[in-house]
C-alpha cells in the first residue's frame, strides 16, 4: 500500500507530508504536525475530543483520513488563539468558569462551542447543550461549560453593542 504526498492547510499554514492513506486526520495533526491540542479519545466517532474545523464547519478528525483533507482548510484548537498568542475570549471564559476538570474534552468542547457561537450570537441553554451533545466530558463538567459559552456570548454581544 503506497504512501501519498499531500499538502495540508492547517491554521493558515501549508505543510507537505508523505503519509499512508490509513492515517487519520487526528493522528496526522498530532504525530506529524505536532499539534497536540486536538485530543484523540475513542477513535471511532463517539467522544468528540478530536473535533476540528474543516472548511469552517466542525467535524470529527478521527473519522477522516488525512489524505482526504488536501485542498481543504483545517483549523484546530491552536488556531482559536488570538493573533498575539493569548487565549481567545471563549478560552478565557472556560478559564473563568472553571469549565474543565481533567481537560481531555476541552479542545472538542471549544470547537463545538465556537461553531455554535458563529451561527447563534445568543444561544439559550438548550441550544448550547444540543451543540455540545456530540462531546463527552467524563468529569461531568457540563454545567460550567454551558456557563462559559453563555458568558462568551454575552461578552460578544456587549462588545458588538459598544462597537
Amino acid at each position: 500500500m503506497k504512501q501519498i504526498e499531500v499538502t495540508l492547510n492547517v491554521n493558515g499554514k501549508d505543510t507537505t507530508l508523505t503519509i499512508p492513506p490509513r492515517m487519520s486526520l487526528v493522528d496526522c495533526l498530532r504525530d506529524m504536525l505536532r499539534l497536540t491540542g486536538t485530543h484523540v479519545g475513542c477513535e471511532h466517532g463517539v467522544c468528540g475530543a478530536c473535533s476540528v474545523f474543516f472548511d469552517d464547519e466542525p467535524i470529527r478528525s478521527c473519522l477522516m483520513f488525512a489524505v482526504q483533507a488536501e485542498g481543504h482548510k483545517i483549523t484546530t484548537v491552536e488556531g482559536l488563539l488570538n493573533d498575539d498568542g493569548s487565549l481567545s475570549d471563549l478560552q478565557d471564559s472556560f478559564w473563568e468558569c472553571h469549565a474543565m476538570q481533567c481537560g481531555y474534552c476541552t479542545p472538542g468542547m471549544l470547537v463545538a462551542s465556537e461553531a455554535l457561537l458563529a451561527e447563534n450570537s445568543n444561544p439559550n441553554e438548550d441550544d448550547i447543550r444540543e451543540a455540545i451533545s456530540g462531546n463527552l466530558c467524563r468529569c461531568t463538567g457540563y454545567q460550567q461549560i454551558v456557563e462559559a459559552v453563555q458568558m462568551t456570548a454575552k461578552h460578544r454581544r456587549e462588545g458588538a453593542a459598544h462597537g
Partner: peptide, 9 residues
C-alpha cells in the same frame, strides 16, 4: 441524526 460534527460530514 448524530451531532453537528457528524452531520457536517
Amino acid at each position: 441524526v448524530g451531532h453537528q460534527q457528524t452531520r457536517n460530514r
